[in-house]
């Protein structure tokens, strides 16, 4: 019996990818999405947005995904917000590494915009398994 996922804080440094994925999450998945172009922007917006889930690109200039996640989780009230990383195709052992860093799972890039939302939702619903 998990809460329905609605609010996603999405961090991706590439403008075109952010536009595409952000739109797909809104239009196909019906989510409320707060898109952020950097870890810094995410930290600024997170408290006001009250996200249920962080969706983070791994490799970003400046602050990378794992660092951003650690700092987001240091904010009051966001300690237990689940996260999903997005990154280029990875080996199973790397997925394990990202999970150890506090991510529920990893969504590999390139992603299919039509099924991105159902992928996110499936991971969200599995999170207590």
């Amino acid at each position: 019996m998990s809460a329905v996922l609605e609010r996603i804080l999405y961090v991706e440094d590439d403008d075109d990818i952010r536009t595409l994925a952000g739109f797909a999450l809104k239009a196909v998945g019906g989510f409320t999405v707060e898109p952020c172009a950097s870890g810094r922007e995410a930290l600024d917006k997170a408290l006001g947005f009250a996200p249920q889930l962080f969706l983070l690109d791994v490799m970003m200039p400046g602050m990378d995904g794992p660092t951003t996640l650690a700092r987001l989780r240091a904010l009051p009230g966001l300690e237990a917000v689940p996260a999903i990383f997005m990154t280029a195709k990875v080996q199973p052992q790397e997925v394990q590494r990202y999970k150890a860093l506090g991510s529920l799972d990893v969504i590999s890039k390139p992603f299919d915009p039509m099924t991105l939302s159902s992928g996110v939702r499936a991971i969200w619903e599995r999170r207590h398994d």
């Binding site: 195709k89 080996q91 299919d112 099924t115």
Partner: peptide, 12 residues
């Protein structure tokens, strides 16, 4: 037809 299925973890 995207090259990779969006499923998260590669199936073992």
């Amino acid at each position: 037809e995207p090259p990779e299925p969006p499923s998260a973890t590669p199936g073992e």
